[in-house]
Write a protein that binds this DNA or RNA. Structure first.
Lengths: 235, 235
DNA sequence: GCTTATACACTTGTATCCAAGTGTGCAACA
DNA sequence: TGTTGCACACTTGGATACAAGTGTATAAGC
């Protein structure tokens, strides 16, 4: 599950299939590989200068994440988006982000070192977000958004939850990247990020949950428009 | 994700790694393979009479599900249980089962064919559960419990949610199997199952959610006891 | 006896090889 | 012209071969 990001200190195990998986994952989510495109083990193996074996592993993982469809003896197809999958993913994400932020708000204690660490980290993340949005560097926002939500889950003390959301997000991020092509605008998210944080610091789980849900629902505003405008990308 | 169970009609694609994965998955969850046990690709390959290739795939999937730890050049270790992992899994499961049953309760409409189908299926499942518990066949209950929860999620219209819970459940089921060794008792679950269903049929999402959470929390009652009694199985 | 160097058996990571299934295009034929 | 049969190029599934890392037991040296 998840790409793991491998934030480990030393002795990071770097296997070829991991490298290839991360790379292909990005290509699919950022729409460099469009839905429906066929890719082949030989092709990718040649590109990376490796044998088919690690490529096979990577394909396998991508298939499990529903980003690739392996058609036996025919090749692998980058999976299409679907309204259903997007709706289901959104529902799952909302439920998990909601309990995550509620637990964070419940746990918050300005005098505890753990809260202070969280405080420093989340402020740093928001500062970076502000910076890239000001600079109009919209492509850099998505990873920072992930950092924000991960920081909350870590503070809430449930990384299993993060791993699950991380997998789910891939399908929502693909939509996100379509939107960015159409009309880039992320400034609004930062406002929500700050408001959510205020609720956490006020030890108000219900308000935090409420604002988190509102934040996530904001992402749905343009979706119907995307569905019809880019229906070539959907099943 | 998940084992997928492959309930497809015809042309079921049955690859070797899938067979091996399912088998090993069961062995680990049912504690036939105890936490800490080392297993090796060669060993399993010989047992199934296949090469290391499909076994590797299966190991890989198990590692992603956090059921196996692959130690480079040393072998693979069946992962230990941990209080943390169990707690986190429980939290995730509660959140997802809660929205699942709430959506089901919201959707319920006695006059719709879909509701009637669901009705028939869920009654059949509960009848089977009653039967195996009456017969004292405790080992057969867990899969039927999974059927119950899956049926609700299917009716709620979110199988992504089911796939996620399915992965998460493995870690909770391992604890469950320990409990079954200590003191088998599942009759209580059926009562909850019926009460939850009543709330769904009453179109009462909040009550359904509440009862589902109570049902799931019931599973936690003996857990501390298990932790201390079988601490050889935990990290 | 105790420490240290080292050979070796055993593991996984990767590459290569063989088997079997799929779709396409061309040729034979009605 | 339209249809059918079939060879072939290309794909993935699985088996085998090779490379490289790890832990242990043994032997050498003090």
């Amino acid at each position: 599950m998840g790409r793991g990001k491998a934030e480990t200190l030393v002795a990071e195990r770097r296997t070829l299939d991991g490298v290839i998986y991360n790379d292909l994952h990005d290509r699919i989510v950022t729409l460099e590989y469009l839905p429906g495109r066929m890719i082949f083990e030989n092709e990718i193996a040649a590109e990376f200068g490796v044998s088919r074996t690690p490529v096979r592993q990577a394909f396998f993982r991508l298939a499990m994440a529903d980003l690739l469809e392996v058609l036996p003896q025919r090749g692998a197809r980058v999976s299409f988006l679907s309204r259903e999958k997007v709706r289901e993913s959104q529902e799952v994400r909302e439920a998990l982000e909601a309990i995550s932020v509620a637990k964070a708000a419940q746990k918050w204690d300005a005098s505890s070192p753990e809260s202070q660490d969280f405080d420093a980290e989340i402020d740093r993340i928001i500062a970076e977000q502000t910076q890239v949005v000001d600079a109009g560097n919209y492509h850099a926002f998505t990873p920072l958004d992930e950092d924000y939500h991960r920081a909350i889950m870590r503070f809430a003390g449930n990384m299993t939850l993060h791993d699950v959301v991380s997998d789910i997000r891939a399908h929502l991020n693909r939509i996100r990247y379509i939107e960015l092509q159409e009309s880039p605008q992320d400034a609004g998210a930062i406002v929500y990020h700050k408001q959510i944080l205020d609720a956490v610091r006020a030890n108000d789980p219900d308000l935090a949950r409420q604002r988190m849900i509102a934040h996530l629902k904001e992402l749905e505003v343009f979706r119907e428009e995307i569905f019809s405008k880019r229906d070539d990308l959907f099943v």
